[in-house]
Amino acid sequence: MSAGGRGLYPLRLSVTAKPLVFGGHSIARRLGKSGIPDWSVAETWECSDVEGTSGVVTQGPLAGRSLRRLVLDHPGELMGEGWSGPRFPVLTKFIDAAGALPVHLHADDGAARRLEGQLNGKTEAWHILDAAPGATALCGVRNGVTADRLRAALEAQDFDAVLRRLPVRAGETVYVPGGTPHSFGPDTLVYEIEQTSDIQQHAMRWKMEDGSPVGDAEFGANLDMLMRQVDLDSRPDFTPGLGIAVGDGVERIFLCAGPYFALERWRAGTAEPLRHAFTTAQILSNVGAPVRVRTGTGTGTGTGTGTGSAMLGRAETLLLPAVCGQVEITGPADVLFGYLPDLDRDVRAPLRRAGCPPRLVESLGPATHTRGPAPRTS
């Protein structure tokens, strides 16, 4: 990656690979990701500022600097004018659910502060990259199920008696608010975007790290905490997203959008390159063939802050700081952009101009905040 001037530029970050028991080899063999261990991998954390796994810049003048340090030293350049916070607010992962994930939930913001001593909870979304025919996910409590009935079914490990089982199809996305019990897999490959957090409460008799059994006392304590955090009314559904044409053979699909993150999928042919302007940091992940990425003014060969040019390989990720301002990608391309949105400016306005009905825009996720730049953490 070349970069001119002083300040931030498109950043490659170190990736953390997680060898959890439900993983397999699809991230390398189906997506084509290189540079990860040859053993079974459940997750690769592509852009992370979670405590203990904060990504580290791997190239350029800032090599060796952690994402946490960049957030503190360059908040405006990285996230956009007026933003402040102690850490990067969005976490992204590739997840290989070769086996089924444990049934679990993540606290919402209120429960995280009240019960976990954390700054924020963990709302997330899953974009399905690949799934076997007949694949399903558990997501949310069935209508009419009481807390007592839920607790009894979880104790009996009878999940289908109380949780909703949904069909899973490649290309669809579901926005999963904190407090929603869930699981997906087997044979499902997912790109996940979420709040920066690793808090979770499990309802399983085994540990996802190594499959070892969970004793009765620990299991009971886990269920106690889960029941204090569960939202019995959260019943999210998969959606196909909202697509708009933005050029000759260039398609922009809004996959999900809420106060904590938005995710888009862009595809381009060869008639013209993909061009995207932005004012907040973009997590750019490639889910197609290798592409050439240029940022900054013009083609990215200038000498200003934020300019750069690089190849982005299969299943690789770049963090594009807000100061870059725009990106151009030569097709054919199939890429994901994850970011912390101003919902009015970044999501509602372009969809409204394209004629999308408000009820469909609302299906992308809740609008609890409209940002300014977001639910702030400082």
Rank of each mutant, 00 (worst) to 15 (best):
G211I: 09
L67V: 04
D231N: 15
T270Q: 12
P332N: 08
L232Y: 05
A281P: 00
F219K: 08
V50I: 15
A221D: 10
G372I: 12
V162M: 02
V56W: 12
L360Y: 10
L223F: 01
F254A: 07
R205Q: 12
G331H: 04
I329H: 05
W126M: 03
T301Q: 12
A100C: 10
G85A: 15
T295W: 00
I244V: 15
R371I: 08
A107L: 06
A42W: 05
A315Y: 02
F159A: 02
S26F: 11
C356T: 15
R371K: 09
E155H: 05
R69A: 15
D49V: 05
Q201M: 11
V246Y: 03
S54F: 08
G288V: 06
R151F: 02
I199D: 09
V176R: 01
F184T: 09
K18E: 14
P75S: 10
L320N: 02
V21G: 04
L115M: 10
V190Q: 09
L351M: 05
G23C: 05
S14V: 08
F337R: 11
D187R: 14
I95V: 11
S309E: 13
G7R: 13
R142W: 02
F88L: 11
A170S: 15
S234I: 06
S84C: 10
S84M: 08
G249S: 04
G331R: 01
A170K: 13
A100N: 06
V50K: 10
G82W: 08
V90K: 01
P358Q: 11
A135G: 07
A322T: 09
A354T: 06
L232C: 06
R294E: 04
V145Y: 01
L284P: 01
A268V: 07
L20D: 12
A125W: 00
E124T: 07
P373G: 12
N222K: 13
V230H: 01
A322Y: 05
F254G: 02
A170H: 13
L150W: 06
A135Q: 03
R275W: 05
E209T: 15
A349T: 15
I199W: 04
E172N: 14
M204C: 10
R265G: 01
V250T: 01
E46G: 02
R29Y: 12
G308A: 06
V162D: 02
G52W: 07
L242P: 00
R228V: 12
L105H: 03
P19T: 04
E218H: 13
H202Q: 13
F238A: 03
L320W: 02
P75Y: 07
G76E: 14
L115H: 13
P61D: 11
L115E: 13
L70P: 03
R265Q: 04
D96M: 03
V56I: 15
L129M: 08
F254V: 04
I36Q: 00
L189H: 03
R12T: 14
F278I: 04
G82L: 09
D108H: 06
A97M: 11
A203E: 08
L13Y: 08
H202K: 14
L223S: 03
P341E: 00
W83L: 08
P366V: 15
D248I: 09
A289D: 15
C139H: 06
R68S: 15
L318Q: 09
R205N: 14
G269H: 03
M208D: 10
D187W: 07
E172K: 12
A147M: 10
V230W: 01
R265H: 01
L67Y: 03
P181T: 07
P373H: 13
G313V: 03
R292D: 11
H182N: 02
